[in-house]
Design a protein around this nucleic acid. Structure first.
Length: 225
DNA sequence: CTCATTTGACCTCG
DNA sequence: CGAGGTCAAATGAG
């Protein structure tokens, strides 16, 4: 976590430096506006990420203070399990994302965020047409990565997903099993996000969406809740 | 054989 | 007590 934060701050610093160089070197009349815009975009994204990560660091600090009662050898398996399943309030750190899907092109490669998600549940939610999928980071055990996400297909538009992220990855996208791709952090993708048009999606089933969703999660119009 | 998904049961919270 | 979230055994895919 601290590493992520430092990386993000370093990114911001690097962008500012580049911007400074650009402004220093060039004559005011022939400024490369597109480069400047791109750098400003990157800088904005980087600052947002820093804020997100800082917010989560504070949240984690609060969590550590709240100690769980250690399980006793006298506890029945059921009680031990119950203690293990103390539900922590997740609402303090969530990120809500709406995703519009483009299935016309090869999705897996272009849209994946570099993290590996493992589905651990699915539930019908009252008042919604489609079930909600529950995912956690594949490395939740091996690297104590706390990131989870809930995926709900929009009732109105089946090409739109509501994705709610909980917690922050403590693993890195670079640790992806697929060494050939080094996809960007999904936080950064907002920079390039675009809502893509779709062909007729009516024949596609929800399971297909969920399968695809497992391959990627990218943000368009994300906001902190 | 290993790892991911499915799904019913279990658990917590409001 | 019901709804939503998670667990974990069974099952499937590669």
């Amino acid at each position: 976590m601290e590493n992520n934060l430092i990386v993000e701050i370093n990114n911001s610093r690097a962008f500012v430096k580049k911007l400074q160089l650009l402004l220093d070197q060039q004559d005011l009349h022939c400024l490369d506006i597109s480069s400047i815009k791109s750098l400003v975009n990157s800088l904005t994204t980087s600052i947002e990420n820093t804020m997100t990560r800082t917010q989560f660091a504070i949240f984690q600090g609060e969590q550590i203070k709240q100690e769980e009662s250690p399980s006793s050898v006298n506890d029945t398996p059921r009680v031990q399990r119950s203690k293990k399943r103390i539900r922590r309030s997740k609402e303090k750190f969530t990120r809500h994302v709406k995703v519009t899907v483009n299935l016309a092109k090869g999705l897996a490669g272009s849209l994946e965020d570099g993290y590996h998600w493992r589905k651990y549940g699915q539930k019908d939610i009252l008042g919604t047409k489609h079930p909600k999928g529950y995912f956690r980071c594949t490395y939740s055990q091996s690297r104590q990565c706390l990131a989870t996400k809930h995926v709900q297909m929009s009732d109105g538009d089946r090409t739109v997903f509501d994705i709610t992220y909980f917690g922050e990855h403590s693993c890195f996208p670079g640790e992806s099993k697929n060494k050939e791709t080094v996809p960007p952090d999904h936080d950064v993708i907002t920079e390039n996000a675009s809502v893509l048009s779709l062909p007729d999606m009516s024949e596609l089933f929800y399971q297909d969406y969920l399968a695809l969703e497992n391959e990627f999660s990218f943000a368009t119009n994300y906001y902190l809740s």
